[in-house]
């Protein structure tokens, strides 16, 4: 049976995330229906060395010519935001919770390679507190897929379509017995990462703006926590890897948290937990691909 090709819309420039968050706030109501099958793409996107350097510094990666595994998300996430703020998208962006993020690096991606980006939405699924949706992304270099990711978002109280499958948001790690590092995360961590990533979601920026969305204080960006955990493993990973993390309880700012790591299946299991209460903020697996 032939599958009709999904329509691909090609954007010429990186979207402005601030404007998209504003749009999202004003168009939150009255959404519903199935996931759009739109694919958004950008072609031959160059990596800005100054931006890469700022990202590396903010996340703790060494500056070199290979992109950190989490870096292409800086380029694909804005496209996903365009998709999610479009009126055709069935879930309201405010209140969407990032539950899980899986990144596959198929080979080392060099900073001087022009990247073809494409994003889409898929897997509308049922969850005990609502519905989840996956935002997919792929990055190609000259027709070769080099990187892909899946971000799973939960919309509390939303209803998945009839017959939708059960959401898959679990990541399993083995015993993590020892904290290996303590991170003292300052209260401006969200603002700093927002500056680099463009992700100016108000829940990350300040206590006041976070309160407006039901959080007692500003919370750290999940993808920043993931990037920092990965940066802590610099030098110990092969080029081709899968990093699959589940975001658990919000990491309120400021916080002192601990990183836990253990070798597992040729890679690593990781967790980020509150230093005082042990509350789990993120767990994940890093595996050779």
């Amino acid at each position: 049976m032939a599958v009709p090709p999904s329509p691909v819309t090609i954007l010429d420039a990186a979207p402005n995330l601030g404007a998209l968050y504003t749009k999202a706030a004003f168009t939150a109501r009255g959404r519903g229906g199935p996931l759009p099958d739109t694919h958004l793409a950008r072609r031959a996107v160059p990596v800005d060395p100054a931006h890469l350097a700022a990202y590396d510094r903010e996340c703790g990666f060494p500056l070199d010519d290979v992109l950190p595994a989490t870096y292409p998300h800086m380029l694909t996430f804005p496209l996903q935001m365009v998709l999610m703020t479009d009126r055709a998208f069935p879930l309201a962006l405010p209140g969407l919770v990032h539950m899980r993020n899986r990144i596959d690096v198929l080979r080392a991606v060099r900073a001087d390679e022009p990247l073809d980006l494409e994003v889409w939405a898929e897997n509308f699924a049922r969850h005990r507190s609502g519905a989840t949706v996956d935002l997919g992304a792929t990055v190609q270099v000259a027709g070769e897929e080099v990187w892909r990711s899946t971000s799973t978002y939960l919309a509390r109280g939303a209803t998945a379509p009839e017959g939708a499958p059960e959401a898959d948001v679990e990541v399993t790690v083995g015993d993590l017995e020892r904290p290996v590092a303590t991170w003292r995360i300052p209260d401006d961590a969200g603002r700093r990462y927002a500056k680099v990533s463009g992700d100016v979601n108000p829940i990350h920026l300040s206590g006041l703006t976070a309160k407006a969305f039901g959080f007692k204080r500003a919370i750290a960006h999940g993808m920043w926590v993931k990037a920092r955990a990965l940066a802590a493993l610099s030098g110990r990973l092969p080029d081709a890897i899968t990093i699959d993390v589940a975001f658990r309880k919000p990491l309120f700012l400021p916080s002192t948290v601990t990183l836990w790591t253990a070798q597992a299946e040729g890679g690593w299991d990781v967790a980020v937990r509150s230093a005082s209460s042990g509350t789990e903020h993120m767990i994940g697996t890093v595996r050779p691909l």
């Binding site: 060395p49 100054a50 350097a53 700022a54 590396d56 510094r57 060494p62 500056l63 070199d64 010519d65 030098g235």
Partner: peptide, 11 residues
């Protein structure tokens, strides 16, 4: 200009 001593030595 953006590279630290540690960046360069590690690379």
């Amino acid at each position: 200009a953006q590279a630290s001593n540690q960046d360069m030595l590690t690379a």
